[in-house]
Amino acid sequence: FHTQLSDKAFFAITNQTFEKLDWDIVYVDEYSIEAKRKVKSLGMTQYTESIIVSYKYGNIMVKSESLGNEIWDNGRNSKRVHLFIYIFHDIEKNYNREELKQLEKEQESKDNWDNYQIPTELPKPKSVRNQNIIFPILVAIITSILLAFIIAKISLTGKYIIFLFEFLIGLALAFSLKLGIKLGNFTDYNKLRNILIGSILIFFIGNQLFQYYFILAENDFVRIDFFEFMKIKLEQGLIIKSLNVGSIGLIISWILQLGLTFIFGYLNLTRFLISYVVKRIPTEVIDFAFFHFIKGKTEQQVRAELASLNWSDEQNQNEVFEALDGIQGNNEMNRTV
């Protein structure tokens, strides 16, 4: 629909509309705002729709998209769009021309952080800790071996539940890396992702090895080596209840298990890492750096501003910038997850 509102007034009224509807804003850029509608069921909160409202030359587009995997939405998205438009117009008509001008000024002031009080001092930085990759590697390896042992025992009972176990394994590996991140103050995302992949492979191979030893120990079989054991396993194939889906089905199940474990581990690792890099920096320092970026200053100029308030160590400054990147990354995750 078309509006005579300016972009500043549009953003201000859209914010009020989302607030009135109790939809959580998850992303804002210079052209659009995205929010998610949440519902509570059985004590748990989940998002059901993503609503994107964009503004361009007075034209406003409202798009609602289901976040579930249903084929048909039973008209819910259409209802969300029309509900947003109704509330938007209802709020808009309460403002006269002068009040809209004042609203524009308030929104511009908010966007520019004009009311921010520049502090005369900041919380002191923590002592510098060098990053150490050894801790994440060691903790991930130990956790992988322990998980391989436990899951091998469970797998031999036939009680393995796909999706649930992959989620738990991925969560456990990500949690172990979270511990390693804290112990080693290590935040290199690409290397942590590679450690996660390596730990998943160690878990998978270890799981097969432990199954091999358990089966040989519990049964009076002629001694065979591990590779012969894997060959026999492939020849037997995968049996789901009474259906044998063969060696292809077994290989597909392995690929599925590895893929799901990585996805669950990757998502949790990302959240743990973002939380760590943001929480280790005081909020006052993050706000101080962000304010200067909002005012158009370069990285070197922001470093100089931080140094003027006793944040002069390069690593401490780098950690501030990592925190800002982490906040941006968290906003992106909120959009997609």
Rank of each mutant, 00 (worst) to 15 (best):
L258N: 01
F186S: 03
L216W: 06
E228A: 04
Q257I: 06
K191W: 15
L201W: 06
S247P: 12
G246V: 15
I255D: 02
S242G: 07
L243S: 12
Y213A: 04
L216H: 14
K233H: 09
I232W: 14
I195M: 02
S253R: 06
E218K: 09
I239D: 05
N190H: 08
I240S: 04
N219V: 02
L201K: 06
L258R: 00
N244T: 03
I248E: 15
F210E: 10
L201H: 05
L209N: 02
R193C: 01
L250G: 08
R193E: 08
I239K: 13
N244K: 05
L192V: 08
F221I: 05
G259K: 01
V222C: 00
L250K: 12
F227E: 01
I215D: 08
V245E: 12
L209Y: 10
K233E: 10
E218D: 14
L238G: 12
F226R: 06
L234V: 14
Q208A: 15
M230H: 02
I215E: 10
E218A: 13
L250C: 06
E235R: 13
T261V: 07
G246A: 15
F204W: 09
Y213K: 12
Y213D: 10
I255M: 11
V245R: 15
F203D: 02
I248D: 13
D225A: 08
S253P: 03
S253H: 05
N194I: 14
I224L: 05
I252Q: 15
L192F: 06
G249C: 11
N244V: 04
V245P: 08
S199T: 07
Y212C: 14
G206Q: 06
I239M: 09
D188N: 04
S253C: 01
K241N: 11
